[in-house]
């Protein structure tokens, strides 16, 4: 298993390098050059040229890439053109918010999607099954920014039962920093007011973000359970008199969730991408909203860093999924 993990980690390196090259080229071949914006409203062409030279924007792209690559190798993601702070510091400040949101969405999608898909398969072609199928198609089709606004209007504006935006109410201080995840940090510091406030703030963004994933997981689980229920071992189990609940929730489900588990890994990338819109609407201070601002200001070092960090997380989560698959299915473990 350890060899497998090491091999997968090594394989991730060229993928990350490719990601960096591709993103760098895509960003630098665009005509967007932040020099004019940095030089200010009243700058002369000479002043703009001086800024361009000072930041190295006038160098050939390959040279700019080599300089950047050298920096990254020294664990230096550069300085943000927009905030004038180290990009790594900005991301470190914002990444926990995105991780907390994404994991909450993933946990919700999994916790609801798997039972929903299983029940839909068990009662297939029933009214429940039809409703689940309609809801899951709608879940995949609905635009998250639209859904977010609808939730805000309903639960914040109309019923006033959930907060509108942000991670915490204004006036409540963030918990002491351990992980940057407010739920964990507030619990560790036994600050339950902050914990409950953080949960309230997380509900709508996490639910919005989870919708697409929930639909995917439910559909894959339903298909997997339906398929497994046709297998001989299920008939034998029934004939041997095992209780139906045990057959479905233990034997069938364990053999059915392999496809759904693979999807969970793939979903993580989609959720991080989806977090951009969700963070923007809910004013969630994560790397998604940071990336949008970086794009609007052509802060290319920030964009590159966000891409790299997301790529890294994606690689890590997929590795974790492979390990879980191996634990779920001993046949997978044998191939490692």
């Amino acid at each position: 298993m350890l060899r497998f993990i090491l091999r997968r980690l090594l394989l991730a390196l060229p993928a990350l390098f490719g990601l960096m090259v591709l993103t760098f080229i895509m960003l630098r071949v665009l005509p967007a050059d932040p020099s004019a914006a940095l030089a200010g409203e009243n700058a002369t062409p000479e002043q703009i040229a001086a800024i361009r030279a000072a930041f190295g924007f006038d160098l050939p792209i390959w040279k700019q890439f080599l300089i950047y690559f050298g920096q990254v190798m020294r664990a230096d993601l550069g300085t943000s053109l927009f905030t004038n702070r180290p990009v790594a510091a900005d991301i470190a400040l914002r990444l926990p918010a995105t991780i907390e949101l994404t994991f909450a969405a993933l946990i919700f999608a999994t916790a609801v999607g798997i039972p929903l898909g299983t029940l839909a398969a068990v009662w297939h072609n029933s009214a429940f099954d039809h409703i689940v199928r309609i809801v899951t198609v709608a879940g995949l089709a609905v635009a998250s920014f639209w859904f977010a606004i609808i939730l805000q209007f309903t639960f914040s504006m109309e019923f006033d039962i959930l907060p509108l935006r942000g991670r915490l109410e204004t006036g409540i201080d963030p918990p002491p920093f351990f992980t940057g995840l407010y739920l964990i940090d507030s619990l560790v510091s036994l600050n339950f007011t902050t914990f409950l406030n953080a949960i309230e703030h997380l509900i709508m963004p996490a639910f919005t973000l989870s919708l697409g994933g929930l639909a995917t997981i439910a559909r894959f689980t339903r298909a997997g359970v339906l398929d497994t229920m046709q297998k001989d071992f299920v008939s034998y189990a029934k004939a041997a008199g095992y209780p139906e609940r045990r057959i479905i929730w233990v034997y069938v489900l364990r053999n059915s969730v392999v496809a759904a588990t693979t999807q969970i890994g793939l979903l993580f990338g989609a959720l991080i991408a989806g977090a951009v819109a969700v963070e923007w609407i809910y004013d969630w201070p994560g790397i998604g909203s940071y990336a949008v601002q970086a794009i609007f200001t052509s802060d290319y070092k920030a964009i590159l860093a966000v891409t790299l960090v997301v790529g890294l997380i994606y690689a890590f989560v997929n590795l974790a999924v492979d390990v879980v698959l191996a634990l779920l299915d001993p046949r997978v473990a044998e191939t490692l």
Partner: peptide, 19 residues
């Protein structure tokens, strides 16, 4: 306390709620 809100609809809703 300066709390910039990125999206216009959210910003206006926050004003209406007293946030």
């Amino acid at each position: 306390r300066s709390r910039p809100i990125l999206e216009t609809t959210t910003r206006v809703n926050a004003l209406l709620r007293g946030d």
